[in-house]
Amino acid sequence: MAEDDRKATSDDLDRRLRGVRQAYQAGTGRSSRPAKSGAGGEKLGVGMRVAVELVSGVVAGAFIGLMADQWLGTKPWLLIVGFILGCCAAFLNVYRVAQAEERRSKGSSDKLS
């Protein structure tokens, strides 16, 4: 028996795999790709992404402002400008994450239907 298995061609294997997959789909009424099981974790990831994006933009802007201030000796004006720019950049980043997320979820629902 083991000898037969080893001799199986790749076409043979493909056919068997497809058969098993179809049987599985028929049995569970779900696609073989587990779309549901990872959903909770993915949401967690997106939430975390947005939170970090919000902070990092402000930090980057403020840091650049602070460094430029030290370099040019214009305390505290560039820090203020950098902070405001950082806030704008953070919101831009969050907006982009949301946009990409929406596009992705729309794309996957199109694929499913």
């Binding site: 975390m48 970090v52 930090v59 980057a60 720019l85 704008c88 950049a89 953070a90 831009l92 980043n93």
Partner: peptide, 22 residues
């Protein structure tokens, strides 16, 4: 342009802080 620049420069920060913080 400054906003996009800061947004671009914040990428390594968000990338590293996310992993480290988690």
């Amino acid at each position: 342009i400054p906003i996009e620049l800061v947004s671009y420069l914040s990428r390594p920060i968000s990338l590293s802080v996310r992993l480290f913080a988690n």
